[in-house]
Amino acid sequence: MTKYARDEFDRVPETSARQGVHRAVAESRHRRRLVPILAVGVAALAIGLVAFLFMPKPGFTSAGDTLAVSAEQSGSSAAASPAPTASSEAPASQTASETPSAPAAPSATPSAVAAIDKTQPVAVFNGTTTAGLANRVGSTVSTAGWTLGTLGNWGGVPQQRSVIFYSGAAQKGNAEALGQLLGIPSVVDSAEFQQPLVVVLAPGFK
């Protein structure tokens, strides 16, 4: 309990509404300041929305526009660049590679002809009943440049057709050359004779 007596200031009505004058004044001032700020913000938001929706966006182009620009650029570059002209002269390397090499000149003497050795003696035997046939064929052989060997009548197994026997593979070319000269296509390699080339004339030889 206080020692002082109560006065009029100590009486506070219980139903009276408490109000602060300084609070009302401060709130009204804050509202006045916020109104222009809000108005500016709303206006800026509206302008940004309009610009986003209706103004062209830099840096973004549609696929169709890109293709159109590429086509126009390629067309203009093709029109600007001159058409390539065919060169009348081929590069040196290409000319050298494409030039066909001259065919080798054929040998004047075939290998078979070069292998013929007419110094080998040729024996001629008559296996027919025609007298003097071995001598006549021997004359043909010697006239062709061959060395003539033994001439006589055939005493071996009767032959059904004329044949030229040769001794060893080295004499095969000589036997074929004699066959062309005499018209005897049959040549046989045989080691039964002591001579390199033996001509046996069979019945019917002309």
Score class of each variant (00 low, 15 high):
K3C: 03
K3G: 03
Y4L: 07
A5N: 03
D7H: 15
D7N: 13
E8S: 14
F9Y: 15
D10S: 12
R11G: 02
R11I: 05
P13N: 13
T15L: 04
A17Y: 12
R18I: 15
R18P: 05
V21W: 05
A24F: 08
E27R: 11
S28M: 04
R29P: 01
R32E: 07
R33G: 14
I37C: 08
L38E: 11
V42Q: 01
V42C: 10
A44K: 01
A44G: 10
A44S: 10
A44W: 05
L45M: 12
A46G: 12
I47E: 03
G48T: 11
L49S: 02
A51D: 09
A51I: 01
L53D: 07
P56L: 09
F60D: 08
G64Q: 08
D65L: 03
L67G: 03
V69S: 12
V69T: 12
S70H: 12
S70L: 07
E72F: 03
S74F: 11
S77F: 07
A78H: 07
S81F: 14
S81N: 13
P84R: 14
S87Y: 13
S88I: 13
E89A: 13
A92L: 11
A92R: 09
S93G: 07
Q94I: 15
Q94S: 10
A96G: 06
E98I: 05
T99C: 04
S101P: 01
P106H: 08
P106K: 12
S107L: 11
A108V: 11
A108F: 09
S111I: 14
S111F: 13
A112W: 13
A114R: 14
A114F: 02
T119S: 15
Q120R: 13
P121D: 09
A123E: 06
N126E: 00
A131H: 00
A134R: 01
V137C: 03
G138W: 08
S139H: 04
T140Y: 11
V141C: 06
A144P: 11
L148H: 07
L148I: 14
G149W: 01
T150L: 07
G152T: 08
G152F: 04
N153A: 14
N153G: 04
W154N: 11
R161G: 07
R161S: 15
I164R: 06
Y166I: 10
A169D: 08
A170C: 05
A170K: 09
A170G: 06
K172S: 13
K172T: 01
E176L: 14
E176I: 05
A177Q: 02
G179R: 02
L182E: 00
P185H: 01
P185L: 05
S186L: 10
S186F: 05
A191W: 11
A191F: 08
E192M: 10
Q194S: 15
Q195T: 15
P196M: 02
L197Q: 00
V198D: 00
V199T: 03
L201P: 01
G204Y: 10
F205I: 05
F205M: 03
K206P: 02
